[in-house]
Write a protein that binds this DNA or RNA. Structure first.
Length: 602
RNA sequence: GCACCCGUAGCUCAGUUGGAUAGAGCAUCCGCCUUCUAAGCGGAUGGUCCCGCGUUCGAAUCGCGGCGGGUGCGCCA
């Protein structure tokens, strides 16, 4: 929190020395090591190079103009030109007291700088089970949404369901010719999946089971659906209804909500218009009976165009750069996901006029998004001038063999089964540790801990890296895990609860006395909650928040071990009690932003 | 073949516009419960940041060239 105030004052001092300089890149951030102080600025060294001046001299001039005496010890110039800031305990105490009065929780809302975001995440397919992969898009997307909202931004969430396309030809054919009503009754999604797999095996010309008659029949069903055939539309709607039940159940368990669920089918009315417009503007043209966008149409001769290696519409084959066009209409007249995605951007811009649209989608689709964003930018430059388009990609979940996670029988694990197993395993652990609690209580703890562990494991590695799925590790009570952090929360919350009720009024700054190393370390970490949220949002990387929460939890644990709270004399008792209360609040808030619940007893 | 992502301790992973002596957890070893939950805490061991060259006050981070792994590359999304 104080880093923003220090940064503001540093900017003023810098401008006093060099009025023309740009201060945008000059940041004050937490120091990497306590021996360098609490905050540092290393931007003056970079700036000195641009100004062609001596970095230490610049630092000296700036620090002479810098007035931070109310917050810090005299600023220290270290090494080649670092500025090191050491907070005065009284300044820390004042921020803590304000937080204890409920004035803030160590972050500063965006206020007038608030932006509008559309976040597109989760996006499961109708008629298919949600599987382990969906936890990434859903968890990362939901965390980013919650963090952006906490920082005061406006966020529109939209679940872009896969509810249209080729697979429905096969599903309709399967429904009509081989549906098992009893199986559908028992487990609709499993039955739909079975139908799809069976028919798909007959339609795949690469498989020995290939039957061209079935393929044509499936295609015929698709054409009828797209033409508005009443029977097919009815079946399609029933499939949607059954799928939505599954989605509602899983999102309910995960605590995820959407403002809108506009699936691909929503955009059907605009697809033909998209192709017409792009063709009319010369951005798209016919090719092999299809309609596609080519590099030369997007960036005509004489206009600035990307180098071949940076051009998403070119690929090198046999030493030659050849076209890799983006298809927007198939040779059979149908449209595909590129067309839909373009219509979706159009709709979102018109409806919400956002500053940014974020797509939380598997990294493997990165080339698609590069093409999509390039087309959107050339189609309507005014859109991309206002609206930033961002693909937030992520890596895959692996088994211990480093290959994509599979069940014992070689299938992709289903999300619902994974959630069940997380709760079951957590229940076994809780029962082992807390046999004294009634079953119902243990089940509730197991739900919170199990789902928390699963989500936390998924958010802890940087989103772009693949990670190894490991039940034992995620549920471990030591190390950087949800159960550990949740446990530290219960300790902090318990002390805070037990310590209340002495008729304390609002806490005044001079009531907070920070002396012990563990008290100061904990307090300083609390101050950095806001900085962490800002960094997390900036990089779309929830793991920053995970690591902060873990640091805070372990700092609390050290404090708890060394600093008795309830038995301490005043003013130590109140000071420590405030630390417990605020730590509990930040841990709870931070975990909530990650979509993870807390519980009062474990 | 080309593009993108990745390569950090035995294992799993962090590492803030390039920033100070590269960190954590697990595992291994040694300690700490008459004290608010020991589901905890402290300490020790452990490194060619894949290799080489370059840029600079400073490189795990940026550039170039290799090596190794993953992913993608015209009518699926």
């Amino acid at each position: 929190m104080l880093h923003l105030e220090l940064e503001k004052r540093l900017h003023a001092a810098l401008l006093a020395v060099h009025p023309a300089v740009s201060v945008a890149a000059v940041h004050v951030m937490p120091a990497p090591d306590a021996k360098f102080g609490d905050y540092q600025c290393n931007a003056l060294m970079t700036l000195a190079r641009e100004l062609k001046t001596n970095p230490r001299q610049l630092a000296t001039e700036v620090s002479a103009k810098l007035d931070v005496a109310d917050l810090c010890e005299p600023v220290e110039i270290a090494g080649p030109g670092f500025l090191n800031f050491r907070l005065k305990p009284a300044a820390i105490a004042a921020v803590l007291a304000a937080a204890a009065r409920g004035e803030h929780l160590f972050f500063q809302p965006a206020g007038t700088a608030a932006r509008t975001y559309v976040v597109d995440f989760s996006s499961p397919n109708v008629a298919k089970p949600m599987h382990v992969g969906h936890i990434r898009s859903t968890g990362i997307g939901d965390a980013l949404v919650k963090i952006l909202r906490r920082l005061g931004h406006r966020v529109v969430t939209d679940n872009h369901l896969g509810d249209w396309g080729t697979q429905f030809g096969m599903l309709l054919l399967g429904w009509k010719t081989r549906l098992d009503r009893a199986a559908l009754e028992a487990d609709p999604i499993a039955e739909l999946e079975r139908l799809y797999k069976e028919v798909n095996a007959l339609c795949d010309d690469g498989k020995p089971t290939f039957d061209p008659a079935v393929r044509d029949a499936a295609k015929n069903e698709l054409v009828k659906l797209q033409a508005g055939d009443a029977e097919n539309l009815g079946i399609w709607r029933e499939m949607q209804r059954l799928s939505q039940l599954q989605f509602d159940s899983i999102y309910g368990r995960l605590g995820v909500k959407f403002d809108h669920t506009l699936g691909e089918s929503f955009y059907n009315p605009w697809l033909a218009g998209v192709v017409e417009e792009l063709t009319a503007r010369g951005l798209a043209r016919s090719s092999k009976d299809a309609v596609a966008v080519f590099a030369d149409a997007l960036w005509p001769e004489g206009t600035p165009r990307p180098a071949p290696k940076d051009n998403p519409f070119l690929v090198q084959k046999d030493g030659e750069w050849v076209d890799l066009p983006a298809l927007i209409q198939k040779s059979d007249g149908g449209f595909n996901y590129m067309t839909t995605d373009l219509a979706t951007i159009q709709h979102r811009v018109r409806e919400w006029n956002p500053d940014e649209i974020i797509y939380v989608v598997d990294d493997r689709q990165a080339p698609h998004f590069r093409q999509l964003f390039a087309i959107a930018g050339q189609w309507h430059p005014e859109w991309t001038a206002k609206t930033k388009l961002t693909h937030v990609g992520f890596g895959k979940i692996c088994g211990t063999d480093k290959k994509p996670l599979k069940t014992r029988d070689g299938n992709t694990p289903k999300l619902a089964a994974l959630l069940d197993e997380a709760e079951e395993r957590a229940l076994a652990l809780v029962t082992e540790k807390r046999a004294d609690l009634p079953l119902e209580r243990r089940q509730e703890i197991a739900r919170v801990v199990g789902l928390g562990a699963l989500k936390y494991q998924d958010l802890l590695p940087h989103r772009t890296s693949d990670y190894v799925f490991n039940w034992d590790k995620m549920l471990a009570l030591t190390g950087n895990t949800a159960p550990y952090v949740q446990y530290q929360f219960t300790r902090a919350a318990k002390v805070a609860r037990d310590g209340r009720g002495n008729g304390q009024g609002p806490v005044a700054p001079d009531q907070i006395v920070l002396v012990e190393e563990q008290e100061l370390a904990l307090a300083k970490l609390l101050l950095n909650y806001g900085h962490t949220l800002e960094r997390t949002a900036l990089d779309y990387a929830p793991n920053f928040l995970c690591n902060y929460i873990y640091e805070l939890a372990s700092a609390y644990s050290r404090f708890y071990d060394n600093c008795p709270v309830l038995k301490a004399e005043e003013p130590t008792r109140t000071s420590r009690l405030v630390l417990c209360e605020l730590t509990a609040q930040v841990l709870q808030d931070g975990l909530a932003l990650l979509g993870i619940e807390t519980i009062d007893e474990m």
